[in-house]
């Protein structure tokens, strides 16, 4: 449980920083004018971070390999969401562009992951990653 606790306060800190500082940063830059940080961008960003945290925690706690893969996928989607949020903030479409590529790469990973999991399952008839711990110090 302690792992999750650390995760939560880490997110809050990032959250607070990004929210607090973002407007200051955006206001200052004279580069393509970034609009003020509307409330919903903050919400989506927080969602993205929470999603990332959930994915991370899921990856740490779950023993089943497929669920572990799902949690990594979740982390990928969290990043994609962050891209969308920032795209919305900057009113810039390249965020969306990135999301599309993220999806393709996530798909490739999924194929690879499931291939591996099947390979392992055929070898040891179990999906738990505990079974695979021979290589150690």
């Amino acid at each position: 449980m302690t792992g999750i606790a650390t995760m939560m306060n880490m997110i809050n800190t990032i959250n607070s920083i990004s929210i607090a500082a973002a407007p200051a940063a955006t206001a200052a830059t004279t580069a393509p004018m970034a609009p003020a940080m509307p409330a919903n961008i903050q919400v989506t960003l927080a969602l993205a971070i929470i999603l990332f945290a959930i994915g991370l925690v899921g990856f740490l706690t779950r023993r089943n390999m497929i669920l572990m893969f799902l949690s990594t996928e979740l982390m990928f989607q969290a990043a994609a969401l962050a891209f969308v949020a920032f795209g919305r903030m900057w009113m810039d479409l390249s965020g969306q562009l990135m999301v599309i590529f993220i999806l393709t790469v996530a798909a490739a990973e999924a194929a690879l992951a499931l291939g591996l999991v099947v390979l392992l399952y055929r070898r040891k008839e179990t999906l738990s990653s505990e079974a695979w711990a021979e290589l150690k110090e």
Binding site: G3, M7, M68, S129, E130, W132, A133, K136, E137
Partner: peptide, 14 residues
Amino acid sequence: LYTGTVQSYALTMA
């Protein structure tokens, strides 16, 4: 720290 299981590595990394 090098216990061999994926989770433990992920935990130490995190």
